[in-house]
């Protein structure tokens, strides 16, 4: 059986690396938390893994804007190795702050080419404050390898800057027509709605984005925080105690690598 290897990227202020490593291991991957300085020193480090995760946290304190400083670092120091990684058909996952980094570094959305399209960004929640609450997510694509098409999942968000906005209507149309929208926020019945169903005011209730290949996924909610039943916010009411919904993202990634890489 092929061993699936994943790197969880650490940097100053990243703080969801341990539970992300745990989730990957639960899915059967061999995960390692690696500081960005080690990859800048030895860019071949990425060659050894098939999944690269930008985890949640407050990289560099979210100074200037969420994910901005780390994105700047990725653009100036890791542009080529990350590009090579993507071109090799491998998987990139950005969660919360990691999603912000992927967007601000220009890796998402789009055709998998770094360099920034300057059409989509993630900014302050309409509520103006950080919020930790649970949301339902409805998949919008069938081609993203991380996502089980048609399966609604329940995950927590925890962010102050999670509102996806586009430069203009045309940019939003492109996101939709090109299939870049990975997840939308919805209520229990799968219907879109105002706050708190859409917790941050994202345009079109967008919660996550993918690229043309479907091998890059970025999302604001935290799948690594719902990998066990007891993480469900009212698990004591549930009769059926199975794995947390977040496992689907990690399981699908590991399965894809096993079957395709």
């Amino acid at each position: 059986m092929k061993k699936v290897k994943a790197i969880v990227l650490r940097a100053a202020g990243i703080n969801c690396d341990m539970e992300t490593e745990d989730a990957l291991e639960l899915a059967g991957a061999e995960a390692q938390r690696v500081h960005i300085n080690r990859i800048i020193e030895d860019k071949s480090a990425l060659n050894k893994c098939q999944i690269l995760v930008f985890p949640g946290g407050f990289s560099y304190g979210d100074d200037v804007a969420a994910g901005k400083i780390l994105a700047n670092q990725v653009v100036h120091h890791l542009y080529e190795p990350v590009q090579k990684f993507i071109d090799a058909g491998k998987l990139v996952l950005g969660i919360c702050n990691g999603f912000q980094v992927l967007v601000k570094a220009g890796i998402l959305p789009g055709d998998g080419q770094s360099g920034g399209q300057d059409t989509v960004t993630i900014t302050y929640n309409d509520s103006g404050k950080f919020e930790d609450r649970w949301v339902y997510l409805v998949p919008q694509t069938e081609k993203c390898v991380f996502i089980e098409a048609g399966r609604q999942i329940y995950l927590p968000i925890a962010h102050a800057e999670g509102k996806v906005v586009t430069k203009d209507e045309a940019a939003l149309e492109t996101l939709k027509s090109e299939g870049y929208v990975a997840f939308k926020y919805a209520d229990e019945n799968g219907e879109e709605g105002p706050y708190p169903v859409n917790p941050n005011g994202s345009v079109d209730s967008i919660a996550g984005l993918t690229d043309t290949t479907g091998r890059i996924l970025g999302l604001m909610p935290h799948p690594e925080r719902h990998v066990r039943t007891t993480q469900h916010p009212h698990w004591t009411r549930l009769k059926d105690r199975t794995d947390g919904d977040g496992m689907t993202i990690f399981n699908n990634a590991v399965k894809y690598v096993k079957e395709n890489l």
Binding site: C16, E19, G56, D132, P156, E224, Q231
Partner: peptide, 16 residues
């Protein structure tokens, strides 16, 4: 107040 705190980071919460 409670929602402004990240009470789930580290993936450890059982009774929130």
């Amino acid at each position: 107040v409670i929602r402004q705190y990240d009470h789930e980071v580290q993936g450890s919460s059982v009774v929130k």
